[in-house]
């Protein structure tokens, strides 16, 4: 099923572009250019992330991943996943390949979920910018609450999966 998601999505997006172009060529062109630009911005990061995935697969023994992120009956792996996701700076699309390789190496699903959620929700690197925009109290409260929610969502994922 997962294999066909890509092609199905591709077809859907292509249809979206055709409909958009029929309504307004200009609009479709803007969408297309911004898509290419967004990809160009992230291309080098992708190169690095997928390169890293290969390295993890070949060089990082599953026992190591299991020791830090594997289910051990405690909430420590959850905390480790959440912290790793919080300090990681990068586009969310980069989080998925890394999370997948961790999962394949035996990481505990709730820890991986906490990793992804905190990656997208908590931004330690963008904290100064957030504080400049909304004030320090907002930035710290939002990131703190988001971190707690990332752990909570991780736990709930463990129940669901």
């Amino acid at each position: 099923m997962e294999k066909y998601v890509g092609y199905g999505y591709l077809v859907l997006v292509a249809i979206g572009y055709i409909i958009t172009a029929r309504r307004s060529r200009q609009k479709a062109r803007v969408a297309g250019t911004s898509a290419v630009k967004a990809f160009a911005n992230i291309a080098l990061t992708f190169l690095a992330v997928f390169g890293l995935v290969g390295l993890i697969e070949v060089f990082v023994p599953p026992t190591l991943v299991e020791r830090f992120l594997g289910a051990d009956g405690s909430l420590l792996p959850l905390l480790a996943g959440g912290l790793a996701g919080s300090v990681a700076a990068g586009p969310p699309a980069a989080a998925y390949p890394i999370a997948a390789s961790l999962l394949n190496s035996g990481a505990w699903a709730p820890a991986v979920a906490a990793f992804i959620v905190s990656w997208t929700l908590v931004g330690v690197v963008s904290l100064p910018f957030e504080a400049k925009t909304f004030g320090w109290r907002f930035a710290i409260a939002r990131n703190g609450l988001s971190f707690l929610f990332a752990l909570l969502i991780g736990v709930l994922m463990g129940v669901v999966l």
Binding site: Y9, A35, F39, F50
Partner: peptide
């Protein structure tokens, strides 16, 4: 490792192309 990287990347390439196309449309 390099082969594994390329294999993973090619596996999700259609989705990546679609994702960026969709980002443009949402925009």
């Amino acid at each position: 490792a390099a082969v594994a990287s390329v294999r993973t990347f090619l596996g999700v390439l259609p989705i990546i192309v679609a994702v960026f196309g969709a980002l443009g449309l949402f925009g």
